[in-house]
Each structure stands twice: as structure tokens, then as C-alpha cells.
Design a protein around this nucleic acid. Structure first.
Lengths: 342, 342
DNA sequence: TTTATTTGCTTAAACGTTTAACTAAATTGG
DNA sequence: CCAATTTAGTTAAACGTTTAAGCAAATAAA
């Protein structure tokens, strides 16, 4: 410890001087080049270790035009789906020894566009993203794609954008959820949803509508309730008002935080779940089994979606670009619990 | 759109050539240097916009020896505390227009040490971290600190390391939680905990012990149960076995996922919460109010901890290094709900 | 009018790597 | 034994910025 130089960052030049060889020799030795003899290599590697040499990442990146870094761009992080998806992404990134930049759009198109501008700086080799709820203009995304940076979309995607996409079968999941409620005896099912995320939320709404019309049930427009995408008490009020007005006996909540709001609204109105009203929600929360009552959920394959997104991105980075327009759809799973018990 | 050059990345050199000025002029104009005349500046800025010029981040970083990037190193991300803390960090980082690298240790010392090695590459200007559960050797941390990179610790800190630390009052929170259970009539309170995280978990255990001994109650060693830090069914079994053997009438769960396991164990044994047993847990889950029954929680100021950690890091980066050993302790809050009702 | 200062730009070095091109010595082949 | 090849290195350019230093022209001061 004591014999190490205090702080003056050690670089290749210093290392080369210490060993009395050229900088190129050091560089090549460390990258195990064929150009360098075995004993020289050993000398270099040992000296590097002893002097605590760590190559400068940005000099490397600049020269090699590769950053070994990817970006994750997502709306939010305090959400079980996204945090589990990040785990999936990270499981791949870690073994590739890449680095991960994370950007949160907070569902703002402006922030998203700004972030894409930043990414044109060569900072990342690729991007994994889930689009913001209100993003309609895709020019920022196309612009980045044109610079040659591959982008993999997951969950909240863009239909009109050609790219690799990992999604789950939202239409089908909502369709199944609706039928599940119908089978549990519901006659008047409402969809509690939010604005935005056209790719997933309108699919879920369509699945809901399709299941109903298929059974010859008219969808009363008052049964589709739009909440805010903030977790707040206002939503509880909106839902409570809806429950009072329309008296639905079944609820499908399309996003995680609406489950909590729905439960709270039911509590407020002293509605018993599942006796008076049955509830199913799209969520990956691990607490679903211990809610009051245990919540029937549509469980999304969050980890796998993240993992596959990352794998496809790395495939692309490795030049395996054949299926650059691949669209993978992973199944979600309805986990029936007491909240929809007959 | 059509008149823009297809893809060939445009750099300062190209921009300079297009404008028939020197590279330095472009650089200075874009950084609004006093050296450049106003009309030249305008010309440059307009051309840059028109040609979609984005400066290369790594060339910049290399030259300026500043990356405008920080790293977050945490054990896990699918956890309400950490994801909320990240939101807090991000709220500061975003306005500073910095970038955030994220690394998950999955509570492995080896990964943590490896990551610290990577960070010596000049990739980041500073680090915000929460240590892995089993990290005991701190040499990797000290080594990075010696290179001059500031590190701010939050939540899971190291007592023997001099640095800025943001924690919450774990001892006190557990002390309060224990008293809360005592006041609710509990006579036989168990602590369900896990191995590791000495800084927070032993503080919580001490708070628990202190509250009991203060009331003249002996702490039966069988009442401190150690679970695994994986969310799995094994823990449910361990807890169920404990409930059967020791018949506690109060439970303090020290980490988030143990709440779910404890509830499931109670369900399994048909124990009614709060009648047969009362439960309080350290968790920030938003579903706590709608659990069965609503869970009394120790709510940690996760967002604020992240935010303050980031602010102090930026203070340090800005050279305000006077309180480089500051230790901030933010209060947690006991939120009483039905799971501990009298 | 002459000298000093300011303005607005250019040249060139530097940041720390990687790598193409070169070279001298050692080895191999005929 | 001499030419061709291989081995083990070196030199220098390049990646795309930033910035110190320099310089000519314009302006201000004496």
C-alpha cells in the first residue's frame, strides 16, 4: 500500500516510461496482441496491476468509437414492471461487461426528446426504451436511429416505427381478464385506465371491448374511466364517483397504481371485494397475494421482456442484424385470486 | 429533412469547413466564448443546428477531464425504497444535466468490488452508493476515494469509512416500532430479519432490544429470526415454523419482502392479524394501505435520502467540500394501520 | 502620430487511447 | 549462405474536443 504512488493518476505513458517500452507496447500487451512477446506481456501486466493502472474509458471509447454503454429510457422507475424489466436488462448487460445509463422521462415527451438529443453524442452504442405516455411525434427517435444507433423498444412501443420490439399480448390479456370477470358473474364491467401509451392501453381497451361485444354486451361509454397517471387521491375520488354512478360489478384496472386507488375507493364506499365488485389489475406487485382481498392480476413477463430486449440489442451490436425488425410478443398470465372469486 | 446529409456523423471539423472558419472558432462559438464576435457566433450556432451537430461526449470528457456522469451503485432495484431513492437522485441529476450510470450489486461483494475497479477509469465524476449486504472489506471503496472521486453513501453505509452519509434513524425507528407493539398489548415480540447490512440491520435490532430491555423484558434469543434475503417460499416456512414454536404476538419485519412472507405465514397458520398477532414492517410499498389487513409501516424518506445524497455529491463536485464528512440522518415515520390495531 | 489595448480569429498542443505502417533483428527455407 | 519470412517491437497518426498562445487588424490612449 505505502509504496504506491499517492494519487497522480497513472496512464499508459507513465506505465510505458516505468517499463522503458513504448506506449504502443503497453497498449498491445494489455490487449493481448500477437505483436508482443510473452515475457514483455507479463512484465506489462504485472506493472499495470502493481501501479493500479486502469485505462481511461473515454480515451478508449473515443478512439474505438464504441462506448460499451447502453441507455435505458423509461417513463418511471418506482413501478414493479419497470424495475423488474431493468433487472432483466441488467442480467444481460452485466455479463457483457457493458455499462448502463438510465434516463427517466416521467412521461414527458419534452424530456424524452431532449434525452434523445443527448444520446447522439456517441455516449451509447444502443438504446432500450419504453416510450413516454404522450409521445406522438417520433422524429427524435428516427433521428437517433439514422445515426446508426440501434434502439430496442419494450412494452410501450410505437406501431409506426420499424424496429425491434418486445411486447406482451395486451389485447389478449385484457380479453382474458374480461372473460374471467364475465365467468365470475359480472354483468357490468368497467375499465379504469389512464390517458396515453396508445400501444398498450388502447390494446387493453380493445381487448376489453372485444370480449364484451363478442358476448353481445354493449360497451357503455361511461364504463371506460380515465384517471390521471399520478398516484394520488384524486384518482380515488374519480373512481369512487364512477362506482357510485355506474355501479359496476367488475373492474379492470389497466395500470399498477390504479389497483391501490380502486381498492381505496371500494373501501370508502364500503363495497366488498369480491362480493359487491370484482377487481383485476395489470400489475407485477409482489404484494398482490396479501392484499385485502388478494388481487387477481395480469402478470407481465417483465424480467424476460427486459432480458430479451437486451439480448436482441446485443445481437444487433454484434452485427447480427438480420432480424432488425423482429417483433416479439411474450404472453402475460392471469393469476386468479380472491378479488375475482365467484 | 431531405437536404440534410444522410448519416456521415458531423463533427467540429466538418462544421468548421462548411463555415470556412477554424475548429477553434466553432468550439468557442458554441461555448459562447468572449473570443468570438456576435455575428460569427450566430452563424456557427445556426449551422450547428441545421447540420444537426452534436458534440462528441467522450472527446469532451477526455479533454476536460470531467464526465458529467455519476454512478449509482445499489444492491437491488426491484424494491420500493431503492426505486424511490433513485427518483430522488434523478430529480437532482436531471436539472444538472448530468448522466447516471446504474450498477446493481445484487448484494454481492465481488460484483461491488469489480464495479469499483471499473469506475477508476474516469467514467464518472462521483458515486452514490448503498453497500452490499456482505461487504466487509472496504479497500475497493477507499481505493476509488483515493483517486479523488467523491462517494456519497446512503442507507446502507459503512461506519468505519469517512465520507458523506445519508441515513435514516434505524435504531430509533425500531425502538418506536417496538414500543408501538408494546402499547398495542404485545407481550412476546419477535424480530424477523436477514443477515447482512450491519449498519442498518444491527441498528434496527438494537432499537428493538433496547425498547424491550428498557421495559424490563428479556429478549429471548429465539425471538430473533434470520431469513434469507431472497424473496421465496423458504422464508415463509421459516417464519411459519417460528410462529408455531415461539407463538409471538408481535412481529417486526426489518426488510420489505419479509412483510409479504410474514403475512403469508400467518395466513397459512390461520393467524388473524392483528387479533392473534400484530405486524409492523420497514417498507415503502404503496400497497401497504390495501393489504389484508392494512400494514403498519416504518416509512423511510427514500426520495429525500436520494435527493440529499445527490445534492451533497454535487456540492462536493462544485468544490464545496467543507462538509466532506457530513452525516445526515433523516427521520423515518411510523404509519400506524390496522395490522397493529389494539 | 505612435504606442498600447482590445477584438476576433487561427494555430497547435493536449487529453489517453488504439492501430496502421514501419523497422531491425531473428528465424526459416532453398 | 543469402533471400524471404516471422517476431517483437517502435513511431506517429488518429479519434473529436478544448484551450493556451499567438497574431493581425481595429480601436483607444498618450
Amino acid at each position: 500500500m505505502a509504496d504506491q504512488p499517492k494519487s497522480d493518476k497513472i496512464n499508459m505513458k507513465a506505465l510505458a516510461k516505468a517499463l522503458d517500452v513504448s506506449i504502443a507496447t503497453v497498449s498491445k500487451a494489455l490487449r493481448d496482441s500477437h505483436d508482443i512477446g510473452p515475457e514483455t506481456k507479463l512484465k506489462v501486466i504485472e506493472a499495470a496491476k502493481k501501479l493500479n493502472y486502469v485505462p481511461n474509458a473515454y480515451a478508449s471509447s473515443l478512439r474505438k468509437k464504441a462506448s460499451n454503454t447502453i441507455a435505458i429510457i423509461i417513463p418511471e422507475i418506482a413501478d414493479s414492471f419497470f424495475s423488474q424489466a431493468i433487472n432483466g436488462i441488467e442480467s444481460v448487460v452485466a455479463v457483457k461487461k457493458y455499462h448502463t445509463l438510465i434516463y427517466l422521462t416521467h412521461d414527458s415527451y419534452e424530456r424524452e426528446a431532449y434525452m434523445f438529443g443527448e444520446l447522439a453524442s456517441g455516449r451509447v452504442d444502443g438504446v432500450i426504451m419504453s416510450v413516454a405516455s404522450n409521445t406522438e411525434d417520433t422524429s427524435h427517435i428516427k433521428a437517433l436511429q439514422q445515426t446508426g444507433i440501434p434502439i430496442v423498444f419494450f412494452d410501450r412501443v410505437f406501431d409506426d416505427l420499424k424496429s425491434v420490439k418486445i411486447t406482451t399480448d395486451d389485447f389478449n390479456s385484457a380479453y382474458i381478464a374480461t372473460n374471467h370477470l364475465l365467468e365470475a358473474g359480472c354483468k357490468n364491467i368497467s375499465l379504469i385506465t389512464i390517458k396515453g401509451y396508445p400501444s398498450i392501453l388502447s390494446a387493453r381497451e380493445q381487448g376489453y371491448r372485444e370480449a364484451l361485444t363478442e358476448k353481445g354486451i354493449d360497451v357503455h361509454e361511461g364504463n371506460v374511466v380515465t384517471c390521471s397517471n399520478k398516484y394520488n387521491n384524486e384518482n380515488v375520488d374519480v373512481i369512487a364517483a364512477h362506482l357510485t354512478a355506474q355501479k359496476p360489478d367488475g373492474i379492470i384496472a389497466t395500470v399498477e397504481h390504479l389497483a391501490t386507488s380502486t381498492y381505496l375507493a371500494c373501501n370508502e364506499l364500503k363495497l366488498n371485494i369480491p362480493r359487491d365488485i370484482k377487481v383485476v389489475c395489470f400489475t407485477n406487485q409482489i404484494t398482490a397475494p396479501i392484499l385485502n382481498p388478494p388481487l387477481t392480476t395480469i402478470l407481465q413477463p417483465a424480467f424476460d421482456m427486459g432480458k430479451q430486449a437486451a439480448q436482441l440489442l446485443f445481437d444487433h451490436l454484434a452485427g447480427r442484424t438480420e432480424d432488425t425488425k423482429k417483433e416479439i410478443v411474450l404472453p402475460s398470465k392471469l393469476v386468479a385470486r380472491e378479488s375475482t372469486a365467484f
